[in-house]
Amino acid sequence: MDFTSILSLVIAGLITNNIVLVRSIGICPFLGVSKKLDSSVGMGAAVTFVLVLSSVVCYLLYHFVLVPLEYEYLQTIVFILIIAVLVQLLDIVLKRISPSLYNSLGVYLALITTNCAVLGTANDVIANGYNLLETVVQSVSVGLGFTLALVLMAGIREKMELSKIPKPFQGLPIALITAGIMAIAFAGLGGMTF
């Protein structure tokens, strides 16, 4: 695998195929946890970590356990269980090792299990037939793309708190429309190739 194909995976994950704003996966946390800048950074970091870990574990399990046993149709059940277990494990480990990080992430950690970005990426990696290196690159860039979208949105929403918005649009409607306008910008870069 050469450098340009890695670079195009990174650009796609970050911008042109951004998981939230172009593929519209993982919107619940994107809308729910984008009210404050610092909590959005924490959520982004937690999701990225779980995403990379679960993609790699799911990749290994699929190719070395499910395929040899011909149990591929169990993919969805096995993957969601792996993700749930990993999140629970991370919860326990972080509580022991780094209580400060645990406290800053604590609330969001449990929510990651039901984040479709995590399961979506694990499924994508299998569907696209990536190898291990591509899997790692893809999941890191998707996670960073998620964080980027979340942080940008939080920055805008913090400013929006101060502006006058018509009453029916307050809260989620204006956030959705803002996200739509951001999505136009992200999709506009879609023609870029290397």
């Binding site: 704003l21 204006i174 959705l176 999505a183």
Partner: peptide, 14 residues
Amino acid sequence: KTAGGFIVFGLLMA
């Protein structure tokens, strides 16, 4: 496209 989905959803909710 995705952008339109966000906008239509936002407008309907409003």
